[in-house]
Simulated scan of single mutants.
Amino acid sequence: MRVLYAAPAAGWDEWAPALQAACPEMELLRDGDPASFDALIYAPGYPEDGSTLDFSRFTRARVVQSLWAGVERIVTNPTLTQPLCRMVDPGLAQGMAEYCTGWALRAHLGMDAFAQDGTWRNALVPPLTTERQVVVLGMGEMGRSVATMLSGIGFAVTGWSQSGRPVEGIAMLGGASLDQALARAQILISLLPDTARTRDLLNHQRLMQLPEGATLINAGRGTVLVEADLIAALDAGHLGHAVLDVFRTEPLPPTHPFWSHPKITVTSHVAADTRTVTAAPVAAANLRRAMAGEPLLYLVDRSRGY
């Protein structure tokens, strides 16, 4: 099968060997006649001249496999009629779970309260994890991985998704129960995608529904959060801290107020990364499924945007 590597050239040296090792029957190319390709491997930033990719020219392509978990930069392309599959990478899910668990534990244990200033703070004893309510917004592959890891070390975890679909071992809420979920979230973790329904979801009204002193960890998409409303909630003392890994503008400008706010920790979109060793086999499986006419893995629902 002929496959176009429709991704920025900077990643070729890393991705090409991994993809070809996972799918040796594939001829992976960086250019050629669009009508000659059976599939596309896609990542945002392509074409690199800033133009919009015209998928209508790929008349033979049976699948577009994204290398990213998020597909918001491609799903609205009106020329895209081929099946689109997002990347669900086991390494990506594990990395996200480790990031969220690390920061949740830091908030839970109150690690930042122990300034190394010679003061003995023997009264700062944290509760057990079983006494701490954590809510995960967005219970896709990564959300389930995060919730499972947190639950495994004792946290009282509730998951929320639009569907409210059951997840084994996790208390689930859905749809109209968002207010109920927020009201119990001493630690709120947002892993929601960027869709019309989720944009600006965490506004002033919803942030104020969180328990006083709550911690927000946003590792999903920056568009979910109204930035000015977060700063206001922190300044008012209602929220205790925010750990932010994703932003409306990336890289986050050096002058942005998040950098200097004493109650905000900025990380540079490092919560989770697609790893070639675990992602390439996922792409290979979908290429084979497409060629065999079999159901595709992680097919994007265009009406939902993910």
Rank of each mutant, 00 (worst) to 15 (best):
L182D: 00
D38S: 15
W103Q: 05
V136T: 07
W259I: 12
G213S: 01
G102R: 02
T215R: 04
A280N: 03
L137S: 00
I217M: 07
T101C: 14
W259A: 08
L296H: 07
L216Y: 03
P44Y: 10
L191K: 03
V125D: 00
M291H: 12
L150Q: 12
M291Y: 11
G102N: 01
Q94E: 06
A7W: 09
T215W: 04
D245A: 03
A283S: 08
A123C: 10
D89K: 03
Q186C: 12
A183E: 03
D13L: 15
T158P: 03
A123M: 13
L287Q: 05
W12T: 14
L230E: 01
R221T: 10
L28F: 04
F58K: 06
A171W: 12
A290M: 07
L234T: 10
A283E: 06
L201C: 02
G45C: 09
R289N: 09
P254W: 00
R184P: 08
G102M: 06
E72G: 02
Q116D: 13
F114G: 02
Y5E: 03
R248G: 13
W160G: 11
L40E: 11
D117N: 15
R60L: 09
G91T: 08
D33T: 15
D38I: 08
R106G: 09
S161C: 13
S66H: 14
Y99S: 03
R165W: 09
C85N: 09
L53R: 00
D89F: 04
C23Q: 08
G213T: 01
A176G: 07
A7S: 08
T129R: 12
A233T: 04
A219N: 02
T130I: 14
Q186F: 05
V3S: 09
D229T: 06
E14W: 10
T265I: 12
A156C: 15
R62F: 05
D31T: 14
T101F: 12
V135A: 00
V71F: 03
A284D: 01
V224W: 07
L188M: 13
E131V: 11
